[in-house]
Design a protein around this nucleic acid. Sequence first.
DNA 1: GGAACTTATTAAACCTCTTTAAAAAGTTTA
DNA 2: TAAACTTTTTAAAGAGGTTTAATAAGTTCC
Lengths: 344, 344
Amino acid sequence: MDEVGAKAKTMKSTILHGIRVALLEIGSATTVELSDKLGISFPTISKFLGQMEKDGELILTGLDHSSGGRRAKRYTYNPEYKLGLALFMEENETNYVIFNCFGEVKEQGKTEPALMDDGFSLLTKDIEKLMEKYPHVSSMAIGVPGSVDNGRIFFIPGYKHIQDFDLKGYFEDQFSLPVVVENDMNAAVLGYHHNGKIKHNHSLIYLYSGQNGPGAGIMINGGVVRGSTFFSGEVSFVPQYDDRNFLRALGKGKKTDKKAIREEYEIDAISRLVASFTAIINPKTIIFCNDEVDESILARISVRSSTYIPANHLPELVASDWKQDYLCGLQVLGLKLMLAEESN
Amino acid sequence: MDEVGAKAKTMKSTILHGIRVALLEIGSATTVELSDKLGISFPTISKFLGQMEKDGELILTGLDHSSGGRRAKRYTYNPEYKLGLALFMEENETNYVIFNCFGEVKEQGKTEPALMDDGFSLLTKDIEKLMEKYPHVSSMAIGVPGSVDNGRIFFIPGYKHIQDFDLKGYFEDQFSLPVVVENDMNAAVLGYHHNGKIKHNHSLIYLYSGQNGPGAGIMINGGVVRGSTFFSGEVSFVPQYDDRNFLRALGKGKKTDKKAIREEYEIDAISRLVASFTAIINPKTIIFCNDEVDESILARISVRSSTYIPANHLPELVASDWKQDYLCGLQVLGLKLMLAEESN
DNA sequence: GGAACTTATTAAACCTCTTTAAAAAGTTTA
DNA sequence: TAAACTTTTTAAAGAGGTTTAATAAGTTCC
């Protein structure tokens, strides 16, 4: 735990990881470009690139045009070298995606719901079929609507039988590949963060008024906030009025089907929440689901919030596609696993 | 920015830093103990220890009792090898501390206030005298009641003339040693975190109802939360009742002198804030100033908070000495600078 | 009290990445 | 078209940390 960052043993994987990330980020590169970017000498880079090309992890796309000297070899990462499987479980279905290292979707679909009793065996069989079809799959990222602690489902309302279940361990044993499990909101905020190509470690909050009551995914300084009892983001409980918290202010006792936010009392409740977020965390952006708000609603929230907080400190309010961000976040997590693998 | 963590050049300072931290943490150690703890081979450790002993940075305290073999040399860090200066500026005075690497205070005192016009030149002269008296001082940590961005005073209410002033740059030029500048609440939360010997990266919130209105220092995942416009922790603005935010709920319009919290309406306002913190961040601990609350008040807040939030998710509420934590936090920041120095 | 066993330190061989130099491959200019 | 100049790649030398072996220093047992 106190270990020095990169000792000799981990050096190889550190470099490998660096090359992969850099190459994916900038699309293609030459030895020198990578050397500059990573601060590693070009002979070392050269050696690694040679090996990676042999393994099929890289593609030699050709030679650069010369600017007065020998032409440089230009490499691209082979996106098909490894694939990933991302899936998230919901009440009635399981959405999955097979994606490559560029984030391109090879196949997308729905399959068995797994959260109910006995759901896992059905799902496992479906995944087995997928694995046969795509033998290059080498990571799994799973999203669940509950609290997760290192792959174990810590708390998941409504599905008692899988509470305390070690989902990560289960699938790792089953398919012998690295698995990551994440909470839905956390994955979504991660996905948005990645999608927006946000430079560096801004704070984000993803707000979602789901069926099971509202929740928020919070990202601060580039890391997801989990909370000491995995309770962070349970904004239902924020006291807002003399005798109402956020949940009751939204009038959500009576499980309505309607999604869109429209009413004045909703606007005010959300604006107060935005104000609370700002006064406490002061995030760069708050993300809403685009099936719940539109631009005009956002504008109203923005105006209303500024009655509570100096406008110049208010976060940017945006609408985004929740499911897409969710899947994207899972893909990011899966990709991380793939890029970290020794693969040797 | 994308550089691989520890390349050869930084290796030396990484190891040096690791040895220093480990040695200060565990008090004393032998070559093998350090090697185990840091994951670095003992010949390397041995070489470094030899050099550090020559430099006077280490003290050979003697030989371990043998457990059947050659007796091992036991080293201790020499706390006087480097000293640090920590100071914080307030309206009417500047508190300072000279401390060694064990955190032991060599001298403590008050000196010129620096926040008013022309205060800096007086303070600078006083510091010069201190530096002559303690030539081993090799870092400075400065606390200010305002927002700080990388040593620059970003926003400081009431002292317009030093707004946007590069305090870090000024003192670094003046005394040619590393300087760190930090906001008061952030330093305090850091100090408490360090003082409590908290294992790992819990979330903490330091709540303070200062003269200039309440504020909070927030630490999440081991890092201080600054906010996108350096507005985080400005909890005055949290909407709490139909028509009152936290500041107004405390009845603080009329700048009262009284400090202690007693009234029922205060308890409720604070409890609602605790509930908001919990629902959003879910911190491990919330720290209050011990001149504002006592155990019975904390108990009342705790009970009241649990009317808003399930009690098992509520943070631990504690009282602590603000000035002491503040200074301690500054010391931690200064110490960090000292331990990172190449010193070669 | 010496033989056998433990453990810490020192020394030597080794591996890996970096630095520096040389070679290879292109482009431009006389 | 050959000489001069650029730039990349390959090769060799160098530096720093690790691994392995050898040595030094203690302890225990007969």
